[in-house]
Amino acid sequence: MDLSVINPILLLAALMSAATPILLAATGELVVERAGVLNLGVEGMMIVGAIAGFIVAVNTGSPAMGFIGAAAGGAILSLLFVFLTQVALANQVASGLGLTLFGLGLSALMGQSYVGVKPPRMGDLDLGPLSDIPVLGPILFSHDAMVYIGLLMVACVWATLKYTRAGLVLRAVGENHDAAHALGYKVKRIRALAILFGGACAGMGGAYISLIRVPQWTEGMTAGVGWIALALVVFASWKPWRVLLGAYLFGGITQLQLNLQGAGVAIPVEYLAMSPYIVTIIVLVTLSADKSRAPGSLGRIFHASH
């Protein structure tokens, strides 16, 4: 065993990139849940985003276009969820699970002729002298644009929820949809927009896997990342900055585990792999006493009775 082979700078740098897919998806889902909707279809929207982005990137030759396509793909799929839960008032848990099933199948059909194709590369962002700063440079300033967009997204969501009127309305809808309705807010419209935003974010998260992390297309390639993103929102107790922290923690445990193995440390991989979920449960329990709990109307169906 030789722990000195683990380079903390590279470990942290890898972490920033590894955390980006769950960060994007979880940020989107956070907005959805703050609006009072529980969409369990994150995995489905991610994988559809992964293939939609892949197809667009390959055909246009531009990874940036790919991410736009991925956002569109995820949002279009989430439109189905909007229809089911907001128009047809169907149960959100079942609709979300259905969305994942449908998304996995649909993505496989869409991707049939893209197996083994190499997508165009998205290079690292050139941040000039910043990336030459010792220690901080490689950790913070040597990544592709999407890493920064992910961070920016967290900041925007945080600021929007906290300081803007739109954010206030969104939270009001999520806390108590009847009261929000009585105040004259369009509950369904607001929720629909939140769900679409969540779909777009999940789509981009998926495309980050198929275009940057891996990069290739294979069926089922998101391999459960969407479910981790769901756990992350809870872990973060519906607060944007904690999502960031959580994404690094969740991604970090995998990174650390791989690093320790490489260094020859015998670790029980399965028990380490279950730890983020156990930590999430502990966080949930401690939060229950705290005032920062789940949005009041989370998962409940809204229908204006008058």
Binding site: L10, T218, T254, L258, N259
Partner: peptide, 26 residues
């Protein structure tokens, strides 16, 4: 030899991570 067990036959993201870690470790 540095050996990392991925505990999966197929998980592209995890395999990519494992490869990167090995490369970082020399």
């Amino acid at each position: 030899f540095k050996i990392i067990w991925a505990y999966t036959w197929f998980d592209p993201a995890k395999e990519a991570d494992a490869a990167k870690v090995l490369i970082e470790q020399g």
